[in-house]
Computed example of a mutant assay.
Amino acid sequence: MNTTSASPAERDTAGPESGRILVWDVPVRVFHWLMVLCFAGAYVTAEHESWRLVHVTLGYTMAGLVVFRLLWGVVGTRYARFSNFVRGPRAVTAYIRGMLGGRARHHTGHNPAGAIAIVALLGLALAVTSSGWATYEDMGGKWLEEFHEAAANIMLGVVGIHIVGVLFGTWLHRDNLIGAMVTGRKTGHPVDGVRSAWRSVGILMMVAVLGFWWTQWKSAPTGVANGPATVSGKAVMQGRDDD
């Protein structure tokens, strides 16, 4: 069941029991910011051969994060589950109409429009990472490389739309959505909050990611700028011209 609360005007009369509640558990927040870091890092290093090790490592990290998010979307806390926020076209259309009219209902978790962006980003991340891996393994030729680049550019566009939606939602509902993804807390009633932040899972995620990055770096002891490096056993020849 998707939990909603009153609009700003309605929420003013909701009573003193309304306050800051825990909505986003630690794994969701760690996933979100690691994805931001990995996608941004992979995107800006895509055209630089000397940074190939970093680019590939961040791409593999993205793939692992998406797999985790898909699993956590089934077994995670209330607002992390896809069943809580993924809705059909009618609900999405109704929310967007209300949003454009300045009267969209405030959702404690993801709203229906935000859910579309999340699902799209997860799907695009899978397309980007799988095509990137296949391209790196020389499995698809030029067309696959172009598909990989196109998928990354489309994903960047969806990220931009998502950011605009977050900023608009923050203004519309008077609730800091960016800050909520840092603290995990949003405006709502105590009964709607999640009981556990699952910090242990978030810590394990960070340990796994940092451990993977360390093993990748150890595979290139000479450094990415000084000679051949290997990524998961495959040599990366520095200064290679692919054009």
Rank of each mutant, 00 (worst) to 15 (best):
W213T: 13
G41E: 04
F39G: 04
W143M: 13
H48L: 13
H48G: 00
G109D: 10
V44S: 04
G64C: 02
P221Y: 10
N111Y: 04
A6E: 03
G184W: 03
T61W: 03
I154M: 11
G64N: 01
S7G: 11
G184M: 02
V224D: 00
V224M: 13
H189K: 15
V182F: 15
M35S: 14
W217Q: 11
L58T: 05
E137A: 14
L37E: 08
V236S: 07
R185C: 01
V236F: 08
I203K: 05
V67N: 08
V201F: 06
P221E: 03
E145C: 00
P190K: 05
W171P: 03
A229R: 06
S5P: 00
R78H: 14
A225D: 07
A91E: 07
R69I: 04
I178M: 10
S232A: 15
K142E: 15
A46C: 03
W143R: 11
F82E: 05
V191S: 14
T61F: 03
V36P: 00
G132V: 07
W24M: 08
T93N: 13
T230C: 02
N226R: 13
V207M: 05
L167F: 05
A113C: 04
L177Y: 06
M1W: 12
N2G: 13
V36E: 02
A113Q: 04
L37N: 06
S232Q: 10
R240T: 14
V194I: 15
L204S: 12
V159N: 05
F31K: 02
Q216D: 10
E17G: 08
L126M: 15
R52F: 06
R29T: 02
I163G: 05
H173C: 02
V92T: 10
V92I: 15
L53M: 01
D25I: 06
L22C: 04
V56A: 07
M237R: 12
I116C: 11
L121Y: 11
R97D: 03
V128L: 11
V158R: 01
F31T: 09
I21V: 13
N153V: 14
R78N: 08
G233T: 07
N153S: 13
E145A: 14
M181H: 08
G188A: 12
V23H: 01
T108Q: 01
A120N: 09
M155V: 06
L65V: 04
